[in-house]
Amino acid sequence: MAIIEVKNLVKTYKISEKQNGMLGYIKHLFHPKYREQTAVNNVSFNIEEGELVGYIGENGAGKSTTIKMLTGLLTPTSGSVIVNGLVPNEKRIQNNKQIGAVFGQKTQLWWDLPVIESFRLIKKMYEIPEGEYRKNLKKFTEILQLEELLDKQVKNLSLGQKMRCEIAATFLHNPKIVYLDEPTIGLDILVKDNIRKFIKDINKEKKTTVILTTHDLKDIEEVCDRIILIDKGSIIYDGEKEKFKDIYGNKIIAEFVVKNKTKSVTLETQEEDFEVIEETENSLKIRFNHDKLTVINIVDSISKYCEILDMHVQEQGLEEILKEIYRGEIIRD
């Protein structure tokens, strides 16, 4: 049975419409006008225990709203959410015991106290057995390199240090499900790697289900097995990460260093099945579909017009694929 079941989930907000200027404000005070906006529109998915799911979409696509409904912080307008047998917004506290969550800048660490004090409070609040607490603390300290941080006051920590502690705090009580809303925002590459490794390790060891929203697609590439892509409140892709690339991103980008160019390659190859993205005197950047063409075909066609000195082939990354989806360049079926 799926650990998270979401069925026909809808959330609409009432947004107050304010007119500009003082007069508009006064008008609004006496005669407020509202319009409805649908943030999440008929979303359904199931998540199995132990899955690492990347929940992605543009700003305002409905990611955070969905996560808030999954954690029981928002009541759905219609549809249902069941998390490990519970309806989160009805049994919020019971549900809280089985989940962990990181929400952007919100923190569960106490600003003026050493980090370890916050951990101790979490231990008491979640009634973590002493042995389990020690074991987890030791392990987390190792992976996230917290040794020197535990006795420092939270306010003296850097952003990266704070986030590492926050992540550790979130997993201390062995939650069955963890929601991570942009856990790597603003962090440097080493900390990001550190956190990704931690999530993967814990998932492997404890079968923790993790739902990760992020704008850093490296997070998804490295951590997640499955992608749910939401756009304007609706899911437009749900499935394996690799398949996602197959469907949307069968494209390859080849960069060439050239010399002695005789003609404009862009113009000459307009009829061909590939696309020249960039062209300068000494370089060419070409995108083509791997199903139809090979690099050899490309080399054949362009070598008529120039001499190829060097080349570099690259599969299109998740980031480029998403950029195109967001821009509407890829139209889904």
Partner: peptide, 13 residues
């Protein structure tokens, strides 16, 4: 400032 979000997620009322 929205910190209450975090506090509503504690395992205690």
């Amino acid at each position: 400032d929205g910190q209450v979000l975090r506090e509503l997620l504690h395992p205690i009322s």
